[in-house]
Nucleic acid binder design. Structure first.
Lengths: 200, 200
DNA sequence: GTCTATAAGGCGATAGAC
DNA sequence: GTCTATCGCCTTATAGAC
């Protein structure tokens, strides 16, 4: 493992757990088991190191999801697949939602927003929505509000993880189990919302 | 307006917008139009000032909601009322979700979690749920997962507000309009999820 | 490339005059 | 109570030896 790789791994951990403001270069150096000066030798500044980490890590959030979603035919199937995939990723990186939220809420530095890979939503999500809507396979809802809702339901428990753990007294393992159960629950909600009522 | 009130007002703004780590005592003093030394004269330290603000402001999130919810009879009515009330509060304090989330995610300082007023949920929400479930008025879902979902759908757009504003190119006014429309959309989702299917 | 030492500035907090 | 001036620490960043 090269020094650069060690730095990136350590910086990921610290930035993701503590956000930009809370992160300390010293702590990154400690976790990478190198000297603090090396951080600047490789990445010049805290800002540039953060930029690097953000770009690399955010790609992870929406990996090949776009491609895979195309293979799921109906809109409901696509949404259910999204929920499944999302929980797999979030279980692996439970701090990511807070990392992204705290970054895009940072004052005077909104350029990070443009790095969020949301292209696949417009291309695949909305296209499929209107197609299934026309053929009567799904109920007419507001696709934009619906998309926010699905993301909100998926991400929210990970943002409130510390509170949930403390309030209902569970550990990481039990939290993970709850999230596993949550997948089917959310898929059920999606079907109940989108399946048209039978006008018999 | 007394000096203490001016400080509290300024501190609210700065802490809520920037979180604890991002907030600067100097900026709070500037906005209060007083001297930095006065902050320490009135509140001793940044920690103690933050504590004061958090306690006061978090109460606002769940004001008399508990009492008012009792007057709404059915579970679905209660949830719809919650959504309405929540959006009214969040429109007034759009930064609050990020403030709370960033606080409870702070390292080594989980005691803030205990100050969140969630008592009314257990008392009113769950009680009403099981009552309506038994009488067949609502479908059987997981009440815990459902509660998280409703909160997630409600809060999430406010957490991603900077991103939404930039990505779809809207201003504060237009965002507020979107959120106003969202109330009915969410209430509709709730009804679709909870209304039992007719087994005719 | 890697280290030690240190610069330079920002920040929370305090002393002390009024 | 309110101010100015300043302390002392922490943090990012760099200089310079090896």
């Amino acid at each position: 493992m090269t020094t650069e790789e060690k730095i990136i791994k350590a910086a990921e951990e610290v930035f993701i757990e503590q956000g930009y403001d809370g992160a300390r270069m010293q702590e990154i150096a400690d976790r990478a088991e190198i000297n603090k000066a090396m951080l600047h030798y490789y990445f010049r500044s805290k800002d540039m190191l953060f930029e690097k980490i953000f770009e690399e890590k955010v790609k992870v959030l929406f990996p090949v999801m776009g491609e895979q979603m195309k293979s799921h035919k109906g809109f409901i199937d696509k949404v259910c697949f999204f929920i499944e995939q999302y929980y797999e990723i979030l279980t692996k990186y439970p701090f990511m939602p807070f990392f992204v939220i705290s970054t895009i809420n940072r004052k005077d530095d909104k350029h990070f927003i443009e790095k969020l890979p949301f292209g696949f939503i417009k291309e695949i999500f909305f296209e499929s929505f209107f197609s299934d809507l026309q053929s009567g396979k799904i109920r007419e809802v507001n696709p934009f509000q619906f998309a926010i809702s699905v993301m909100g339901m998926s991400v929210f428990p990970f943002l409130t993880r510390p509170a949930m753990k403390k309030l209902i007294g569970i550990n990481d393992e039990q939290f993970q189990l709850l999230m596993q159960q949550r997948i089917d629950e959310l898929k059920n909600y999606v079907r109940l919302i989108l399946t048209p009522t039978n006008h018999a």
